[in-house]
Structures are given as C-alpha cells and as structure tokens.
Design a protein around this nucleic acid. Structure first.
Lengths: 196, 196, 196, 196
DNA sequence: CATGAATGAGATTTCATTCAT
DNA sequence: CATGAATGAAATCTCATTCAT
C-alpha cells in the first residue's frame, strides 16, 4: 500500500528540518568549512546520500539554513516598522533583537560568522547589506522623530551598540552576559535624552 | 663567519614577513579555508616548498599572522594603561582602536573573522578572551574614576560600541563610514556626562 | 480467475513497453551512462521502485531494449534470406536496412553507440559479431550469384557502405541526408555491373 | 639544488604524455564512463592526485586526448588539400585515412565511440561536424574534377565507404580485416570509372 | 635553501538499488 | 504492485604536506 503523497510530504519535511537543525548546530559550533557532510550525516543519524535528497549541495544546505533564519527575523522585525510611538519603536527594536538572539543563538552565531568571513556565496551579502542600510535609515528617522540632537550620528552609535551587544551576547552566552542590565541602561539613556 | 649568519637571518626574516603579508591579504579577503597554500605561494612569487621552510604548516602561518597583529595592538594599548587622566584614557582608547584599524584593516578583518568562526586552533580564543576581560575591567575602572553613574553597565555599552564600530568600519571601509563624526559624537557624550 | 491473471499480464506488458520506450529515448539521446534510473522513472511518470518490478537492473532494462530492437530487425531480415532473385536480394537488403533505420532511428542510434563504446555487458558483442559475419557471407554469396567480379571485396565494400550510410543517416537525420538519392545511386551501380 | 625550469618542463611533459597514453588506452578499451580516475592512476603507476596536476578534470583529460589525436590527423590531411592531381588526391585520401588508423587505432576507436554516444561535452561535435562538411565538399569537387557522373552522390558513397571501412578496421583489427584488398578494390573501381 | 612534482587522506557528490509503508 | 525515502559503495576532486633533485 503506497503512502499518500501527504504522508510523504510530511516525512520529507521532518527529515529536512532534522538535517537543517543538525547542520545549523554543527556549522555554528565548528564553522562551515570545518564541518563535513559526513559529520552532519553521522550526527543526524542518516547516510550521507540521504542528505542529497534534500539539498543539492553543502552550499544549498547552508542557504536553506540562512533562509530559515532570515524568515524568522524578517517576521519579527516587520512589527517594528508599523505605527507605534517612536520611543516604543526604539525599545521594540532593541528588545526584539535580544529576544531573537536568545531564542535562536545558533542561527545568529552562524549568520555573524558567515558575514565576517568572506564566504564565496553571495547569499549573506545580498541579505545583510540591504538589511543594514534599512536599519540605519530607520534609526535615523526614529531619532529625528524623538527630537534627539545629532540623529544621524546617534543612529550609527545605536547600530554599533546593537551589533556589539549581539556579538557579546552570542559568544559569551546569556549566562555570562548581563543583557538585561545593559539593555535597560541603554534604553534609560535614550529616555533621559527625550525627557529633557 | 657570524656576519654571514646574521645576514641569513635578516634575509630569512624578510622572506617570512613577505609571506605573512601575502597570506594576511588573502586570508582576510578570501577567508582562511578558501585560501590554499598554492595561492599564497603563487601570490608571493615563491614555490610551495619554500613556504614550508619558514612555517611548519598553514596553521603555523596563521599563528604567526595573529601574533604579529597582536604585537602591534598590544604595544599601542600599553600606552593607555599608563598614568594619564581618565578622560584622556577614554579618548585614547577609542581613538587608538580606530587608528589601529585604519592603519591595518586586513589584520583586524581576519582577526574578527577568526573569532567569529569557531576556528579549531585555540589561538584566537586564548588571545581574545583575556583581552576582552581586561578591557571590560579597564572600562569599569575608568568610568568609576570619571564618576559616571552605572559604571559597569556603561563599560559594557562602550565595549559594544567599540566592537560594533570596528565591525562597521572594517566591513564598510573608511570611505563609506563616517568614523570621525561617530567617534566625536561618542566622546562628546561622555564629556557631557562628566561635566555634569 | 484466469481472466484476471491474463489481464494482469497484459497490463504488465504495457507498462514494460512504456518503460522500454522511455528508456530507449533517453539512452539514445543522452547516452546510457548519462541517463539515470531517476530520469527514466520521472520521464515515464512512474516511481523509481516500480521500475524494479519490471526490470532487475539498469543493465537488464538495456538488455530488454536491445532484444526488442533485434527482434524487429531479425524479422525484417529473415525475408531476405528466402528464395528471391539475387538482385532483388541486394535491393531488399539495402532498402530494408534504410527502412528499418527510418522506422526506428532511436534503437539504431543506441545500438551503434553501444557497439562502439566498449560496453561491459556482453550483449552487444554476442549479438553483433555473428550478425556481421553472417552478413558478410551473405554478401559474398550474393555477388557470386550475380557474377560480379571480386565478389569478396565487393562484399566488404557493400558492408562498409551500408554501415557508413547507416551512421550518416542516423546522426544527421533523414531531413539532412539525401538517403533516397544515395541508395538509388548505389543500386544503379550494381545494376550496371550486372548488365555488362 | 633546484632543477632548472627546463628540467621541470621536461618531466612535466613526460608525465603528461604518459597519463594521456594510459588514459587513451583505457578509454578506448573500456569506454570513457567505465574507466575511473583511480583505474587510470593505478595503470599509470601514479597517485590519483597527480593526475589533477596535469588535467583539471576527467573531462579535461579527455579533451587533451582528443586534441592530440586531432592534431595528428589534421596535419596528415592538410597534405591532401594541396595541389595534386585529382586521382592522386582520391588515392591519398583513402590511403591516408587507413594509414592513420593503423598507426593509432586507439585514438580512432575512442573518437568514433565518443561521436556515436551523446557525450555531453561539445568537443566532439564541434570538431567532427565541420570536418565532415569539409570532407563531403572535398569529395564532391574531386569527383567533378574527375568527370565522374553523379559526383555528389558518389561523394556521399565514398564518405560512407570510408567511415564504414574505418569502423570495420578499428573494431576487427587489421589482422582480421583485409584492408589492403578492400582499399585496392575501391580505388580500382574509381580508376576504371575515370578511364572510360 | 628552492623547486614543483607527487602523495594520500579526506571531502563532496552521484546513483543503482533496497525497503518500510 | 506503487511509492519515494534511504542506503552505501564508489566516483570525482581538493589540497596540505613531503621529497627527490
């Protein structure tokens, strides 16, 4: 009795996700180039060949991981671009970033690593560059709306803070980094600037 | 013939430096794993075998690059830990960091990339972790000396700013990033906090 | 229920033929080694597994294709070995060869390709070698019957002409090759030799 | 003491030729797809990797073999297009073809096999198609010069004879095929046509 | 010390075949 | 009988490292 195509689809989706998770873990912990297809297959408990049912190549697997990560992020960020008061936007921006990282630090670790190293695939650059540009413009507008002096420079600083914070959080782990306190401090500072 | 031996040493040192520079360039621009020994040899205009006269392995070459980079940095930073007024320390810290990057962006690019990816060699972690710890403590003490409230949190924020700034500067290039304005803005902010 | 069993057999035969046709097409157009079982299954609109219900292996499938092709040919050729006048035999030989190719160029394309490349399977050699020998002898006898001088050499030449013609016809296609004119010319030549 | 670059070149050329010869032998005897790089390396008495010093890929190796073969052929054929009497041209054409095959049957075996099977590489088609066209035109002109009736058809027939002859000679081997007699017979026939 | 040819372990990839459902 | 997910052997290819000259 043949399985229905739905059953197949389900099995396929499960396997795909399982492989992605395993690969994400290994890529993030050991680096893309130091992780072999063999390792991923072994860790996932499947044969090497099975991996190629789901992904055309190691590169394609990486792309799938990136896309999945970006999907999550894009979704979360969209909320922020909606109509809320500027100060809430700022707070949302910062807290959402932190929440995303804490929710899925592996994806972020990998993402940052790929951006930093000159990975041949264009995927990362294509994704990160426009995102960053959008972010900078967003910050600029936000600070202008908040009537904070030197909104452009302040935007650059916030971008630096967020990226630096992300790096530290990811590579130290939330157990060793007082995110909450740092975030609150940053936000307090902006609040005090607005009140004035 | 001690003279000859010295000359030999000098020539050897020159060759070593030439290889290091070439390798640094390639590692930074293309990534460590995507750069082969063949490439380095060809780019440096020497034979593959010659490279192994100077370095035991690809890993050893990387280590030499890192050590050279760290040497420069350590030297520059030492000045800051000497007896100068806190505010000058802060300014020195920020400006020295930027100056170091602008002076040798390739080393930094590579350094950051290696730190981010989980390079098997322990070199980077061994070097970066204590440095970061020292930095954090240094910032903490500095802000305390400056009587700035919440010196610990402020220290974390400054660390984040510096790392974020470094990242942006390195990956965008100084032509596309208004370092000077951003740095001045950051320093002005601390100055205003002190005056109060 | 013998009826059912018969119906089964018929359905089975239909499926088999469908697969054979699909595989023949792909093998001929893309080559045996460059055509995967997956491709055949997909092109035939069945699952990979199903293919193995009908054929034990890729090799077995190839064998079935060859046998089917040979069946057709053998049947057509048999007629020629019957009792007809030598000149009609000659004409029949040539025209039948051309007709067979025009009727089923794919089979021939594949056949020739397999004969030329040293396919590991013995099938082709087992089939082609005796056929060729029989052909040569047949030609020899024919030309002797026709009282044409040097019947043996003439036999070799005719064999060469037929194989060369077949090759050109198959690889250029009948639209780009003036078969009719060439065949008539060849036959005319033999006719003029006989009349003399 | 480093070898001079000339010495290196020499060694390199020798190795390259050795590999080409080994690969040609195996490709011709077993087929391109049924011959693995491992086999070639083992047969040549070298390591797999060495092969990739000389050829970028299996395909590239094949290309080198083809080019070498074509080089020989082109050179030999050029002579024929020069100014000699038509009948000598014809004889030269036929005898040169046979001589080339007898001199290097492996190359020809491989060449024919590749032309017949639909090898993905365009190399063969690019080479063979124009060659064939040139050949056909050459024959046509030759028969016209010889005042032989139906020169075009006769050209097609000669092309068929030559290709058929080549096939038979190559796949039976000169020990089992009376080339000399067949060739003489063919030429005699043309001579008798001219005299008339 | 210099050279680049050669090695060989290991990486990625392919694909005929099997098998649980 | 049908399905396509999974296997695993083998193929192609890469590249840090060694070594004869």
């Amino acid at each position: 009795m043949p399985r229905t195509s739905e059953q197949f689809k389900e099995v396929r989706e499960k396997s795909k996700e399982h492989i992605i998770k395993t690969a994400l873990y290994l890529f993030a912990e050991r680096g893309f180039y130091s992780t072999s297809i063999s390792m991923i297959a072994k860790e996932a408990g499947i044969a090497k060949g099975a991996l190629y049912h789901y992904f055309d190549s190691k590169e394609d697997l990486l792309k799938a991981i990136i896309e999945m990560g970006m999907g999550k992020m894009g979704h979360a960020m969209e909320v922020l671009f909606s109509n809320v008061a500027p100060m809430e936007k700022l707070e949302g921006m910062v807290r959402t970033t932190v929440a995303l990282i804490e929710d899925d630090p592996l994806t972020w670790k990998l993402m940052i690593a790929l951006t930093m190293q000159q990975h041949p695939s264009e995927t990362m650059k294509e994704i990160v560059a426009p995102l960053e540009k959008k972010g900078t413009e967003f910050f600029f507008q936000m600070f202008k709306d908040l009537n904070i002096p030197h909104p452009e420079e302040e935007g650059y600083v916030l971008a630096a803070i967020l990226d630096g914070l992300a790096m530290h959080l990811i590579f130290k782990g939330e157990d060793h980094y007082p995110v909450e306190r740092v975030v609150n401090h940053v936000l307090d500072r902006y609040r005090s600037m607005v009140k004035k």
